[in-house]
């Protein structure tokens, strides 16, 4: 497996939708290619960080105002 081939299936590796036979090829490639290993690990970490950290917080009072406004508008169109 080449780096280009690995990169093509990087998403499938991250999403764990890889056939068993390809998995062996990937493991063999990663053992000898530090760059691809770093790309895989840091891409996984990128996703994890964005998933775990809410960057656009909706404060409770804004949330409540927004919610009340939505329901009021729905009530009016009934």
């Amino acid at each position: 497996m080449t780096c280009t081939e690995f990169l093509k299936i990087l998403d499938d590796v991250i999403d764990e939708s890889i056939a068993a036979e390809t998995r062996v090829e990937i493991e063999t490639h990663l053992k000898k290619c530090g760059h691809c290993e770093v790309v895989l690990n840091t891409t996984r970490k990128t996703i994890e960080i964005y998933r775990c950290h809410e960057i656009y917080e909706l404060p409770v009072e804004v949330n409540e105002r927004l919610h009340a406004s939505i329901m009021e508008r729905c009530r009016r169109v009934r």
Binding site: L10, D11, I14, V39, T42, T43, T46, I47, I49, Y50
Partner: peptide, 13 residues
Amino acid sequence: LLRARLQLRERLT
């Protein structure tokens, strides 16, 4: 998705 993930990874590095 692949390009978004790679670009974010690159920038976060």
